[in-house]
Structure formats: C-alpha cells, structure tokens
C-alpha cells in the first residue's frame, strides 16, 4: 500500500472528461494495482479512481494511469508532501461479529470437539505470515493446524494451506495436517480443502456454547 499526499490536479479522459483542479489530495496505490484519489471528506469515496488492471507510468511531476479500455487518468503533481509504502500482507477479511473469535475461544477450551484425543498446543500460534487460530496435537502426537471461520470459503482454505506450508518448515512440527472448521463450509471450499488433504468440520455454535435450544431442529 503506497500513500502519497500531494498537491496535484487530475484529468480523466474516457467515457467522459473530468477535471480536478490543483489541490492537496491523497493518492492511494494498492497492491492490487488500483489507484484512487481522495480529498479530506466523502468518507471512503474517492474523487476519482481506476480499477485494476491498469498501467501507471510515473514521470517527474506527472503520472499517467491507463486502463485496458484506453481511459487515462493524468495526475499533474506540483508538490509531494508525503510518500510512504507499507506491506500489509494478506487481509483476514471483515469479521461481521464476534462469533469467529468466540468460536476460537470455545474450541480452544475443548479441542476434543474436533477429534477425540486432541490437545491444544496454543491459540494464535505464530508463523512468519501471521498466526494460525489453533495449533493442536492429535491422539498420536501429530501437529494439527486449525483455521476457524464463521463461513468457510475458498480464501480460508488457502489461508490454512499457507500456514501449513510455513509450519511444515519447523522440524519439531512437521508433518502438519490441517483442519478447516466453520459454522458452514461452502461446497467449493470443501472440494479445495479435500484436494489439499485438509479435513473440514462444521461447528455447531449452540452446541459449543452448551445452549439448549427451545426451538428444536429436525436435524
């Protein structure tokens, strides 16, 4: 993520023409290849932007951004006040409520829910690309990385695959197998997980919370 605060003007040529007169603005360049130009208002909404894939050519005092359709965004820079870049890594995604964290807490308290004989090594076990939710040892002492989601989607499986790759580099843990645990696992995520040798487990939040439902289910 690159953040540039600059005094600049912006000209868009494409389906219509638009001009932003010279002013101080934030230019946001994301790792996905997008660029957006923000003023100090309008909340998250940019004044102008270009979605990836686009090509950015930086010249002294002038950036030209071109989309595959030939649209151009010309940013004329009078003065750069700040220009910083940060590597943010893979985003864990929006957590709509506290259920995911609570599921982790509940599972950590009783990992035998995942399999008989399972014992917890550590919650938030660190790897060099971020912590895996739970690291456990199964009944035979083998390391098991557990990734917990509210809704299990492909991105979660891929995240777990990356953690396992990192954990497998540690001779004390290798070989590490994975469990993808979620309240529900999307069919595509299940297919991907199974193809990578990762087990999927659907979690019953109420059962973990030991909540007895008045409204009973058929199954």
């Amino acid at each position: 993520m690159r953040l540039v605060i600059a005094t600049c003007s912006v000209d868009y040529q494409g389906r219509l023409s638009a001009h932003l007169p010279m002013a101080t603005r934030l230019l946001l360049l994301k790792a996905d290849g997008s660029i957006s130009i923000h003023a100090d208002d309008r909340a998250y909404k940019p004044l102008n932007w270009m979605n990836p894939p686009c090509r950015i050519v930086e010249e002294p005092g002038r950036w030209v951004v071109t989309s595959p359709k030939g649209e151009t965004l010309t940013i004329t820079i009078d003065e750069v006040h700040t220009d910083v870049s940060h590597h943010l890594g893979v985003d864990p995604g929006l957590q709509k409520d506290g259920v995911e964290a609570h599921l982790q807490e509940l599972l950590a308290a009783d990992v035998t829910y995942l399999a008989d004989g399972m014992v917890l090594v550590r919650r938030e076990y660190p790897t060099d690309i971020g912590p895996v939710d739970l690291l456990c040892r199964d009944g035979e002492g083998a390391a098991v990385a557990v990734e917990i989601k509210r809704v299990g989607e492909i991105a979660g499986v891929e995240q777990l695959v990356r953690y396992i790759e990192r954990l497998d580099l540690d001779g004390r843990l290798r070989p590490v197998r994975g469990i993808f645990a979620a309240q529900s696992v999307k069919p595509q995520a299940r297919v991907l997980a199974e193809s990578r040798g990762i087990a999927c487990i659907e979690l019953d939040y109420d059962l973990l919370r030991k909540v007895e439902r008045a409204e009973m289910r058929l199954f």
Binding site: E212, R213, A214, E215, M216, R217, L218
Partner: peptide, 8 residues
C-alpha cells in the same frame, strides 16, 4: 409439511 415443535 413436517414441523418440529418448540420445547416448553
């Protein structure tokens, strides 16, 4: 139409 009762 099969319906599960509610526990009361």
């Amino acid at each position: 139409y099969l319906l599960m009762p509610v526990r009361v």
